[in-house]
Simulated assay, not measured.
Amino acid sequence: MSHPETHLALHRIRATELRARAGHYRLAAAVKPPVHLRARLGWTLVELGLRLAATPRRTAAIA
């Protein structure tokens, strides 16, 4: 059996490691792509969605 103090010490070490990693990801998330690229990508996705939602053309059945 493990002692509660050992478990608590391991928990604190792991929590410190996770906080350090979270800080790295927070800094990476702060960097945003240029607005014009985001807008262009957004409109491209809208156009793609409209094409997919349009009624499909009828194709000739193969006999």
Rank of each mutant, 00 (worst) to 15 (best):
L52M: 15
T44A: 13
L27M: 14
A63G: 08
H36L: 14
P56L: 11
P33V: 03
E17I: 03
T6Q: 12
E5Y: 14
A28H: 11
R40A: 10
R40Y: 14
T59Y: 06
L37P: 01
A9S: 01
E5S: 07
H3S: 06
S2V: 09
V46G: 00
R38A: 14
A30R: 01
H7R: 05
A28E: 08
A61N: 08
M1N: 01
I62C: 12
E17R: 02
L48S: 13
R51E: 03
I62Q: 15
L50I: 07
L18G: 00
L52C: 11
P56F: 04
A61S: 11
H24T: 00
P4K: 09
Y25F: 15
L10F: 07
L48E: 13
R14Y: 05
H3M: 08
A20T: 08
P56M: 06
H36D: 12
R14V: 01
H36Q: 14
H7T: 14
A28I: 04
R26E: 06
H3P: 07
A39F: 03
A61T: 07
V46N: 02
H7Y: 05
R14A: 08
L18Q: 02
L41P: 00
A54G: 11
R26V: 06
A22Q: 13
H11T: 12
L27P: 07
W43E: 08
S2N: 15
M1K: 08
H24G: 07
S2R: 13
Y25L: 03
R58F: 03
Y25C: 03
V35Q: 10
A9Q: 04
T55G: 09
A60S: 00
G23A: 11
R21M: 12
R12S: 01
V46Y: 01
L50E: 05
A20Y: 00
V31C: 06
A29G: 10
H11F: 12
H3G: 06
A22R: 14
R40D: 01
T6P: 01
L41G: 02
G49S: 10
P33C: 03
A28V: 14
R26K: 13
I13P: 01
A20C: 10
R14I: 05
I13V: 13
L8V: 13
P4C: 08
R40Q: 07
S2I: 10
T59F: 12
V46M: 04
A54S: 08
T16D: 11
A29S: 13
A9G: 04
P4Y: 09
R51P: 02
L18E: 09
A63S: 06
A53H: 05
T59R: 14
H36W: 12
H24N: 12
T44G: 15
H11A: 09
P4D: 13
A54I: 04
G49Y: 02
R38W: 01
L45P: 02
P56K: 13
R21D: 10
A22E: 15
A15V: 04
G42R: 09
M1F: 11
L18W: 06
L52G: 04
R57M: 04
R26C: 02
R57N: 10
V31H: 15
L37H: 14
E5N: 11
